[in-house]
Design a protein around this nucleic acid. Sequence first.
DNA 1: CTTGTAATTTACCAACAGGTTAAATGTAAA
DNA 2: TTTACATTTAACCTGTTGGTAAATTACAAG
Lengths: 112, 112
Amino acid sequence: MPHDHLSTTFAALADPTRRAILARLALGETSVTELAAPFEMSLPAVTKHLKVLQRAGLITQGRQAQWRPCKLEAKPLQEAGSWIEQYRQFWEQRLDRLDEYLRDLQTGQKPG
Amino acid sequence: MPHDHLSTTFAALADPTRRAILARLALGETSVTELAAPFEMSLPAVTKHLKVLQRAGLITQGRQAQWRPCKLEAKPLQEAGSWIEQYRQFWEQRLDRLDEYLRDLQTGQKPG
DNA sequence: CTTGTAATTTACCAACAGGTTAAATGTAAA
DNA sequence: TTTACATTTAACCTGTTGGTAAATTACAAG
């Protein structure tokens, strides 16, 4: 709900329908109707999801006759990825400690 | 709002207060009061944010006397990171195309 | 057993999210 | 110019979020 960039992106990703839409768009541009097909919800509901993705900059929509083909945009995903990446060191460090612990077990030392 | 794991994690990350709390916890465990200090909101509001983080598995809370020290947990971050990582190829590919485009400009060729 | 500190719970509120159906818009094609 | 298709907008409903203030629980120390 807050209007900062990263929050908007994460909020957009916090819905399985929207993530599925992004997954489909990673395969290539497509129309709203085709995007909506796999879901059991109404078309207006999908339109709303697309708006959320659009506001987050995760997709853009073009115009071809009566179709409005959607296209995946990489930048916000990249930014969200970078934010999480900051913590990679944290979790790798924890895995390293587990590694160490397991090694200590094998060599019969008491883990400290 | 959906109750699947990844959605819960992304929803938890979609708030600057909660991301700031995680950033603080990356430096080490600490109490609720200390976590709340940088923010202008009330303590109950922070407690609520901690609950959201907890339900997402992003933190755990221990017990020492009247304190309930919070600790960052890596796993959900890792999972969210992995999900986004799927798209790395997508955005790197786009950067490659930009690269190519810029190279073509320099060598005086018309980009196709 | 009273006082102070840490944190949570409860009750409440306004704003928003995600869905619906029905109506409107824009474009192509007959 | 009518018909059909693709998509959006409008109006509405329900449940959730993020905040508040006030009361409550839990523990430590005088």
